[in-house]
Design a binder for these strands. Sequence first.
DNA 1: ATTACAATACTGGTCAGTCGGTATTGATAG
DNA 2: CTATCAATACCGACTGACCAGTATTGTAAT
Lengths: 188, 188
Amino acid sequence: MQTLDENKRKKIIAAAGKLFGKKDYHSVCLSEIAAEAKVGKGTLYVYFKSKEDLFSSVRIEGYMDMYRYLSKNIDTESGDPLEHLHKIISETVKYCYRNKSIFKLLRAGTGTKMKPEIKKTRKKVLELTRSVIESGVEKGILCDSKPAYTANYLLDVVRSGLSYSDGQIPQDELIEHIYNFFSRALKK
Amino acid sequence: MQTLDENKRKKIIAAAGKLFGKKDYHSVCLSEIAAEAKVGKGTLYVYFKSKEDLFSSVRIEGYMDMYRYLSKNIDTESGDPLEHLHKIISETVKYCYRNKSIFKLLRAGTGTKMKPEIKKTRKKVLELTRSVIESGVEKGILCDSKPAYTANYLLDVVRSGLSYSDGQIPQDELIEHIYNFFSRALKK
DNA sequence: ATTACAATACTGGTCAGTCGGTATTGATAG
DNA sequence: CTATCAATACCGACTGACCAGTATTGTAAT
């Protein structure tokens, strides 16, 4: 019996991610994705039940990957909250630079309401930032009445910086500017 | 020859803005817009040369309207930069709350590259913020190595706040949080 | 009668999703 | 080890729906 190939699923997600990152939802057609992934169009429907499902999966996978990457590189438990903040910002920016296609998906929104599963995954990424800020507040080092709002801003500011004049800002300059901005805003 | 009626043009733009604000570009169809504007579909082509053109016009008109609104309510020339900042933030947020549909367009991007004319209009809005920050820096009250980046962040942070849990944050709370955040980040 | 326009039919093209056929795999048995 | 079988992955041509843009028609006002 032939079995589903996790590897092929990954290839499809990657191809779709690349295209959805460049063009908007309705401008990407499935035959294009199939070609990019080097599979038949019908195969897409073996792994995903619809275009929407594929798109959602791309976003979920994207957030999960980002989350894995961030949580591998950031230890929230100990140390200086400001250092964590710097780490979160620099790793987020670096991750987005390395995965140019992903950052457009950060706020995609196809018009149809965002599926709860995507929200949940996105939330995991946000929680990381929020918990860093919150622990800083508890320790009396930071000051923020609504860390959850701020965490939300952060992702959008990164996206903002990345799309500023079509991504012409050097990575390190962007990291420093954002870190400066956030640390000054939050420092007690 | 039919005479162009500026009023009718406005009605079409308003109808289109309302729909483009709710759904994404490809999910809004022209007969829908025509119905909403209570004009015939053909009439759309008297006033706009294509769907793209109409969409661009909506965005341009939106930025212009926002710009007019902001510059009417904000006097950059004199007074305290921090007060100006507060004014910019509160007026931007208020404007977006009142024109719910517009704020989704702030970063729309249809996949096709943003037309230069839209960029130019968007820039006018950004310049306002940038010049306020810059004058604050010159006066030695504020501190920012890249006011242009920060101006860019601001629009996205407002959008971020507005879409946070589907716009559940009370207007005044959002204004205060954003102002607090930005003023702390920029104050010397 | 002429003008202006809404309403609507039409056209050409695009694309999501389906379907019937083929290829591949894992299991079972001899 | 090899042959056979059944399950199902894989494929791409096809279809039906949708829609931008255009052409036509009906009607109301001047």
